[in-house]
């Protein structure tokens, strides 16, 4: 489904990604974890061209993209089949919840407005916000905004959705509703690549854990095995530090 090879990225003197290879299969829910500054978010952003990798290739839907050289047209074509959910929601402030979801359908997909509205309402229903369709982002709680953002992503019927710490900006009592929506999504078979600090999600929802540190993948295993018995010492330390292990 999606395969990244030898992705490298530096910001000034700092090498943030040091040759990442990552494969995501159809229906995979991959949790990308690791300490702050390990490059998880940058990797996600490089995969969707929000950052330009300095080196590396990506195979997606059978097409190979040379990450540093991909043209703007190819980027837009690639984005037609991916969704992205941001840490800070990034809803369009001048659009209602419904408008946020229809915008991409109408403008990028050239869908007719009525059809887009139907599809958008269906997406909002899936995240439990059909009753909030006519509200503006400023009238919604953080959790609701993030659910609208997820609806915006799923309405495009992408092959994969990237999540960049989707619950990190939320008040603790709002995290559950967003994770609930993500769990439903995972169970429906959606392919997801999720940067997260939510170990409950990584353990219970994702089927694979990728543990990163210092711009490299240190360990990559099935979630259950990873949490039960991490292979590397670094992963064990990390899990201890966040209280996931004695």
């Amino acid at each position: 489904m999606l395969e990244l090879s030898n992705v490298r990225k530096r910001f000034g003197d700092r090498e943030v990604l040091r040759g990442i290879d990552l494969k995501v299969e159809d229906g995979d829910v991959v949790a990308l974890i690791g300490p702050s500054g390990s490059g998880k978010t940058t990797l996600l952003r490089c995969a969707n061209f929000l950052e330009r990798a300095d080196e590396g290739t990506m195979v997606f839907r059978g097409e190979t993209y040379d990450l540093p050289k991909t043209s703007r047209r190819d980027i837009r074509r690639m984005r037609q089949h991916t969704g992205f959910v941001f840490q800070s929601y990034n809803l369009f402030a001048n659009r209602t919840a419904l408008g946020n979801v229809t915008e991409g359908l109408v403008v990028a997909r050239k869908m007719r407005k009525a059809e887009a509205a139907d599809r958008a309402m269906e997406a909002l229903r899936r995240v439990g916000l059909a009753d909030w369709a006519s509200h503006y982002p400023s009238q919604l709680s953080g959790g609701q905004q993030q659910r609208v953002a997820i609806a915006r992503a799923i309405a495009l019927e992408p092959d994969i959705i990237f999540f960049d710490e989707p619950t990190s900006a939320l008040d603790p009592e709002l995290i559950g509703e967003v994770l609930g929506v993500m769990r439903d999504l995972a169970e429906s078979g959606m392919t997801m690549l999720v940067v997260t600090h939510e170990m409950t999600f990584a353990r219970e929802v994702s089927n694979r854990v990728v543990f990163m540190e210092d711009g490299q993948i240190v360990e990559e295993r099935r979630s259950r095995k990873f949490f039960k018995n991490p292979h590397t010492e670094r992963a064990r330390q990390f899990l201890r530090a966040i209280g996931e292990r004695e």
Partner: peptide, 28 residues
């Protein structure tokens, strides 16, 4: 003053930079 995240979100739903500017950023 318009958060850059909204531009990124627009690009991520497949809109062109020009469309994002015209429909999302400039009105705000």
């Amino acid at each position: 003053s318009v958060p850059v995240g909204q531009t990124e979100a627009g690009l991520c739903v497949g809109m062109s930079y020009t469309k994002v500017m015209l429909r999302i950023v400039i009105p705000q």
